[in-house]
Amino acid sequence: MYLPDFEYFNPDSVEEACQLLLKYGSKAKAIAGGTDVLVKMKKELLAPEVIVGIGQLSQLKKIEYVPGKGVVIGSGVTHNEVQNSKVLQEKYLSVSEAAHQMANNQVRNLGTIGGNISNAVPSADMPPILIALDTTAKIVGAKGERTLPLEDVFAGPNETVLEHDELITEFVIPDGSFTGSTYMKFGLRASGALAVVGVAASVQMEDGVIKDARIVLGAVSPVPVRAKKAEDFLKGKPAGEEIFAEAGVIASGECKPISDIRASAEYRKDMVRVFTKRALNKAANEGHV
């Protein structure tokens, strides 16, 4: 319950941060809000000798709409900033709402969207909705930069494909054709509970017919996964409760959750069914909510 000693760097730019990460290699850890890293350090699950602070970098703090590109969200934006962003509330209220459902006010005030993604916890709340909206992540390293679909950033529980000197600088939700999206978090109390199951859905509706859909499941596999069979099943079908219920059953069959202190695998599977159905209904009928 005591923070071990470490050296702290406060770089002025992403480039400098990457250089520091390169220099200190596996001894170093980047820290944005610190709501994951500091907790782990106190529990002695992590003992970096060097900490590189990136939470103060103004480069990473923007949320803006760039015509032709989409909504750009800097990785250093806090959950409360995501929640309160006018741009997001207008374009993708579903993303703001997902941030609002996280943790508690104190943690939302510190924790960042970049930290939430990079921490790569299976129950994390931001990945499903962002993946459902085809979000990409811009990754900058000491040797250059690359852009990946967010879906491909996750490698396993607590693992991403990022190299040691790489940081995510921004997320882009591209201008797309989705007409509605939502994230439904199922936690075991109203606030301050991790997701037992999280389901994000996005749909492209045209005259009552589902042209395209994404269903992304959180907390039921090592990384956030798409229920692709259920997505395929929906394409071209008329929207309706029965269709969505059927998609729920298919999605439930696709996931392979584990049992833990919070819930059994059996229960999680059935909750995937319930929340897939509900999320699709909501996204189809209410837009981005």
Binding site: N104, L188, R189, A190, S191, G192, A193, L194, I261, R262
Partner: peptide, 12 residues
């Protein structure tokens, strides 16, 4: 701890 020993919050 109060994360996994869940007592009701004001919202509950």
């Amino acid at each position: 701890n109060f994360a996994e020993y869940r007592m009701p919050t004001a919202l509950d």
